[in-house]
């Protein structure tokens, strides 16, 4: 008996295969139901024109009730976007990945949200506490308790 997470991911994957990803988002790998990679790039006018980032999703068996662990890949020469909510280790401070996660959201929905987070960026800069954070950051961004204090971006 397969778990709810692989069952749902299987359906999400089938949908991605049959309908494709939204513009600017591509599936890189989804070999199993524990770790998927996507590339995202911001289309049109933005500070990130021409840049392509790799997003990693890690799922535990509680998905979709529990949120996926989402971060930018910063290995293999890949870089996290310079953004006020993205730490240089790839961790992302976004409420939908934390306390505002909803099981109704899907992998593609998260990609689209992060894509629009980049698209609306006004100034390329790291979070103010970047250095402090990455020194002690846990491997899994879900173990970080982010403090969401900016509703505007």
């Amino acid at each position: 008996m397969t778990s709810i997470s692989s069952r749902r991911l299987a359906k999400e994957l089938a949908e991605i295969h049959s309908e494709g990803c939204p513009v600017g988002i591509e599936l890189v790998k989804a070999d199993d139901f524990t770790c998927w990679w996507f590339t995202i790039e911001v289309m049109g006018e933005s500070l990130y024109q021409g840049e392509k980032f790799t997003l990693q999703f890690r799922f535990d068996s509680g998905y979709p009730i529990s949120s996926p662990a989402v971060q930018f890949v910063v290995t293999d020469g890949k870089q996290a976007p310079i953004h006020p909510h993205v730490y240089s280790n790839g961790h992302i401070c976004a409420s939908i990945l934390g306390n505002e996660w909803s099981p109704v959201l899907s992998v593609v929905a998260v990609c689209v949200t992060l894509q629009s987070m980049l698209a609306s960026c006004k100034e390329k800069q790291r979070p103010v506490d970047n250095d402090r954070y990455i020194r002690h950051a846990p491997d899994n961004p879900k173990k970080t308790q982010f403090h969401y204090d900016d509703d505007t971006v």
């Binding site: 006020p84 909510h85 401070c93 976004a94 409420s95 939908i96 934390g98 505002e100 959201l105 949200t113 992060l114 987070m117 979070p127 103010v128 506490d129 954070y133 002690h136 950051a137 846990p138 173990k143 970080t144 308790q145 982010f146 403090h147 969401y148 204090d149 900016d150 509703d151 971006v153």
Partner: peptide, 12 residues
Amino acid sequence: EPPNHVGNHTTA
């Protein structure tokens, strides 16, 4: 315990 972080966030 997990570090607590000031940060900003993105609303969906």
